[in-house]
């Protein structure tokens, strides 16, 4: 398949409603061209996962997602044998006189192999997008499973041998920096850090995602979010919260912010009660920064 060029990627990203900086497009482009995984880090809610989704749409291919969690092991990420099936099969063969060797060959064939996301992704005919989400949540041991896939595009299954990728998937890894990832993993990837967007970019994002938003309201929301992020909060709200908030306000037919509205809907933006309390205390100041209270 012909891979899109740099300018095309930028255009396609915009077309899919993903407002991006040039730099993001460049990273995506290079990761596709060089066939290297792309490791994306950044605070929560800045659209890391979204990149993978949009990429799948652009390439018109499937997105396979592996959500990482503590205790995730190879049998959930790479492959597992279907033991129940194998046992039943053995019982069935009891009466027939197949040799032990044949039985073994049968039992460890692809028929009994349960493909988990990673094996699934590399055994497809068509290049897919493989999203390994929140890799930092998995144990350090799990990173080592990944190394073979990430650099050599193969998985070694002891009973069968080495399983080489039929097609190389576009791999995107995301992380929140809850822990430092290993050097070995970083070395195999291209790195991209996404930060909270600038005011203009966030406004563009909100306007794209919530098309029927009032011009003024959009600006006010983005200014408010910007001021909010400058405060020292436990959980700083991301872009997705801004979009949620905008959607909520538009659905309530509101076209401007004031103190009461902000107080009532703060739960959409902040997800921590201490943050809420803290924000409510300094709401006047925040609104002043946003330029809302001047009008009143």
């Amino acid at each position: 398949m012909q891979l899109p060029s740099l300018d095309q990627i930028q255009g396609l990203l915009n077309k899919q409603g993903y407002i991006s900086e040039e730099f993001i497009a460049m990273s995506l482009f290079l990761s596709m061209q060089l066939e290297k995984p792309l490791l994306i880090e950044g605070p929560a809610g800045v659209g890391k996962t979204e990149i993978a989704k949009v990429l799948a749409k652009i390439l018109d291919t499937e997105l396979i997602r592996l959500q990482c969690y503590e205790g995730l092991d190879s049998s959930h990420a790479l492959y597992e044998w279907n033991y129940q099936h194998q046992l039943l099969y053995l019982k069935m063969l009891d009466e027939s006189n197949t040799s032990l060797k044949e039985k073994e060959a049968n039992i460890f064939s692809e028929k009994f192999l349960l493909k988990r996301p990673i094996l699934d992704a590399i055994s497809r005919e068509k290049n897919v997008v493989l999203l390994i989400d929140e890799i930092d949540r998995a144990d350090e041991e799990f990173e080592s499973f990944l190394l073979e896939v990430l650099s050599d595009w193969q998985i070694t299954i002891p009973e069968i041998g080495t399983y080489i990728a039929k097609s190389k998937p576009h791999i995107i890894l995301t992380g929140n920096r809850t822990r430092e990832l290993s050097e070995a993993l970083r070395r195999r990837c291209l790195y991209l850090w996404i930060d909270y967007p600038s005011f203009e970019k966030e406004l563009a994002i909100v306007q794209t995602k919530v098309p029927n938003i009032d011009q003024n309201l959009g600006k006010e929301i983005c200014l408010f979010m910007k001021a909010l992020r400058e405060m020292r909060l436990e959980k700083t709200p991301g872009v997705s919260e801004a979009i949620d908030w905008a959607t909520a306000l538009v659905n309530m037919n509101i076209d401007h912010l004031d103190k009461k509205i902000v107080e009532d809907t703060l739960g959409v933006v902040l997800k921590d009660w201490q943050d809420m309390k803290h924000t409510q205390d300094s709401l006047d100041e925040l609104l002043l920064k946003t330029g809302v209270s001047k009008k009143m």
Partner: peptide, 15 residues
């Protein structure tokens, strides 16, 4: 930008 997406391997380096 091309070099920037290849050489840095952490947030600090990218910045």
């Amino acid at each position: 930008m091309c070099l920037k997406s290849i050489f840095p391997k952490s947030k600090y380096q990218q910045e």
